[in-house]
Design a protein around this nucleic acid. Structure first.
Lengths: 212, 212
DNA sequence: CTGCATCCGCTTCGATACTG
DNA sequence: CAGTATCGAAGCGGATGCAG
């Protein structure tokens, strides 16, 4: 078991469960949908597989993560959040919102990942101009994600979007550049780096909300 | 510097700054007002003074905590949250809300502290029946705290309340018993353990919201 | 190939003792 | 009171090994 604070305090109890290194980032990875062990390891550079194993076991024991074996023919193991863990989303959202102010310019050795920034996008968008309702599919570095927009609220998840209003293709580097503000969105440079198929206006509105 | 994740992700950036052990609990302690080094150490059982020193330096360097020397005649050192850190309150609130479901019955060796539960009180109250507006002073184990209620929102802070509508005196154990549900509030047993001076109805309403 | 377990060098933590 | 010094124990990161 992890080292406990032994405090009768709700905040301390949360930290008992997800306060150790990597734990909340694992939850972040699973927020967009189930993932396999190696996918998680890849999305968490530097974690070390033994720590990942330990954390997954701890999270499973805490009832936050479920280990599930996909039905044939896949037959592989995936990890997914339980219903208990959906409450954690509120914490992640609060962290992501405040963290946007800490993001600053992209550091020398900062890794970039499409799912991280899609999450950031979904969290910051409600503060910006509303995005037209619909599903937007994002293809970022060979990863396919989607965001469902409904009355100002944005729900991100992994996989192709069902009946997308627009499909946006770009690199993670480009998305990071938008987030950092180093790439202006209404620019010819941006048009070269971003391919939009479908509702271009809505897609632009979505991306604009990442940096405002 | 602390070990960084090196991810261009708002959540990871937050964890870079407050993700290490004890960091968020230090912020929790400071949420109710400035505190001295030894007060912090006392409110964080098991921390070890060298870790506390390290964390305070890191938080100061991150611009979240300010080290201030009180004017004469006190002339002692206090630590307080900066304006940057107020955004952290949203994270703590999200954690406290979700953490209430993890709280459960009080464990064998769970420490109890008035400020922790006052924080819990302030966070859960908006979900319950509204508390009449006004300031409520809480005296818990020789610690004096207060909660300002205004249209459903509760703002806790340390020290005596200005012009309190009611003064509530009780032990931390009693407050924990209410939170855990092991002590029913409208009961003769509770009346013996809780002393209310002033607006008893409002005070009861406040305490009721801790367990609903 | 995936999903770990094991080992090792290093860092961090917890606890206590000590100092201006 | 406000820390610094110290030291054993625990945890982490990286590499490697290996079974299904």
């Amino acid at each position: 078991m992890s080292r406990l604070y032994n405090q009768y305090c709700p905040v301390a109890r949360v930290l008992d469960v997800v306060g150790e290194r990597w734990a909340l980032l694992i939850v972040r990875e699973l927020l967009l949908g189930p993932r396999r062990f190696t996918d998680l390891a890849e999305g968490l550079p530097g974690i070390g597989t033994s720590v990942l194993t330990t954390r997954l076991k701890q999270l499973e024991q805490s009832g936050l993560v479920r280990r599930r074996i996909l039905p044939a023919p896949a037959a592989s193991v995936v990890y997914e959040l339980t219903e208990e863990a959906v409450g954690l989303a509120g914490i992640l959202v609060a962290m992501a919102r405040w963290g946007m102010s800490l993001l600053g310019p992209r550091g020398q050795d900062d890794q970039v990942n499409g799912r991280w920034l899609v999450l950031a996008l979904a969290v910051t968008a409600p503060d910006a101009r509303p995005v037209p309702a619909g599903t937007y599919e994002l293809r970022i570095d060979d990863e396919v994600l989607n965001i469902r927009a409904l009355d100002g609220h944005l729900q991100p998840s992994q996989g192709p979007g069902p009946d997308p209003a627009a499909t946006i293709t770009m690199s993670g580097d480009t998305l990071a550049a938008i987030a950092s503000g180093s790439l202006d969105l209404p620019s010819s440079q941006a048009d070269e780096l971003i391919a939009i198929d479908g509702d271009a206006a809505g897609a632009r509105r979505l991306l604009e909300s990442l940096h405002h």
